[in-house]
């Protein structure tokens, strides 16, 4: 298998995902099949070929530094799952 269940669980941890233990095997085999297919890229000679991150070469998209209207605090917080006064509320971070 291209990716072991241990590797998959490690990646899930990095991605902040919790995988249902009953689904780990199947998911590893699906991801493995995709990775095995992706490995066909190794057949392409890319020696000296620069990578492309963006198809259209827009560089340095400057704009004037002018005062603009922005969302009000209430609007910016309107979709927050938990709020206290003007802040997003999160579970305790520091112990």
């Amino acid at each position: 298998m291209k990716i072991s269940t241990e590797e998959l669980l490690h990646v899930a941890k990095l991605a902040r995902l919790r995988i249902d233990p009953a689904a780990v095997e199947k998911l590893a085999s699906q991801v493995g099949a995709i990775l095995a297919y992706v490995d066909t890229l190794a057949r392409v000679d890319t020696e000296g070929v620069p990578p492309t991150a963006h198809a259209i070469g827009v560089t340095n998209a400057f704009r004037e530094d002018r005062l603009q209207s922005h969302l009000t605090t209430d609007l910016a917080l309107a979709n927050a799952p938990a709020r206290e006064e003007d802040f997003f509320l999160v579970p305790k971070v520091v112990g």
Binding site: I3, E7, L8, V11, A12, L14, A15, L17, L27, V31, I34, L35, V38, L41, A42, V44, T46, V49, P50, P51, T52, A53, A55
Partner: peptide, 24 residues
């Protein structure tokens, strides 16, 4: 998961960089 794996330590060159070269 696929993207996190491909970008994770040790795999970047084999996947993301390689794919970006093929994109060129």
């Amino acid at each position: 998961l696929l993207g996190t794996y491909a970008l994770s330590a040790g795999y970047y060159d084999a996947y993301y960089r390689k794919a970006s070269q093929v994109r060129t």
